[in-house]
Simulated scan of single mutants.
Amino acid sequence: MQKIFFYVARKEHQPGDLLGCGHFGAGYRTYPYDVSGPQGALNGWKIAKEMIFESIREQNYGSLPSRLKCSYAYVNKSDALTNFVPGQGLFAHEVVIVDELAPRHVGDFSLLSSTNAVPTNSPFIPWAEATAHAYWGGQNPKIPELLTLSPIKVLKRIA
């Protein structure tokens, strides 16, 4: 079983830091509703997509851990560093899972990224449901993303 994973954050972490679960999901509580700017207008759609992903998980993949409660890491270093531009205020770290027995899932991050945009003039909910099934099905991920209910421990900064 793979031991080393890769974590990208807006904060630089130090070796030995323990990063708890659920920061991603908790972050949605702070998203502002602001339709005056492109990011603010997209926040609602991001939250809606995550809520649909969570609903599909609960209904069909209940043994898998919730994205809203997990720690995240890239499986491959190259994926973590893709589109990583120095000076953007991002930091990449090498990490390990603290509790190897904690529930985990490897989904396809590309299904959640901006490159997998909602088709224009298409119904949102059926698209999001199909995308959620593909994510939770975990078949041949283009960009494998580890979800775990374990905290992750920082080994070192890599970028």
Rank of each mutant, 00 (worst) to 15 (best):
S63H: 15
S63W: 13
S63A: 14
S63T: 15
P65N: 09
P65Y: 04
L68E: 10
K69S: 14
K69R: 15
C70W: 03
C70H: 08
C70M: 10
Y72P: 00
A73E: 02
Y74N: 01
N76C: 12
N76V: 11
K77M: 12
K77P: 04
K77S: 09
S78D: 11
D79E: 11
D79V: 03
A80M: 04
A80T: 00
T82E: 00
N83S: 08
F84N: 01
V85H: 07
V85R: 12
P86W: 05
G87M: 13
Q88G: 05
F91Q: 01
A92G: 05
H93I: 11
H93N: 05
E94Y: 06
E94F: 06
E94K: 09
E94M: 11
V95F: 05
I97Y: 02
I97N: 03
E100N: 15
L101E: 08
A102R: 01
A102E: 06
P103V: 09
R104I: 08
H105E: 06
V106N: 02
V106S: 00
G107D: 05
G107W: 02
D108Q: 07
D108G: 03
D108C: 09
L112E: 03
S113Y: 02
S114T: 06
S114R: 06
N116P: 00
A117K: 10
V118C: 13
V118N: 07
V118Q: 11
P119Y: 12
T120Q: 12
T120K: 14
T120P: 11
N121S: 14
N121G: 12
S122H: 15
P123K: 15
F124M: 13
F124W: 14
F124V: 15
I125M: 15
I125W: 13
P126E: 09
W127T: 10
E129M: 14
A130P: 10
A130R: 13
A132G: 10
A132F: 13
H133T: 11
A134H: 08
Y135C: 05
G138L: 08
G138D: 07
P141F: 02
I143K: 04
P144G: 06
E145A: 03
L147K: 04
L147M: 14
T148I: 07
S150W: 06
I152R: 00
V154Q: 00
L155F: 11
K156E: 07
K156F: 08
R157P: 05
R157N: 09
I158A: 00
I158M: 03
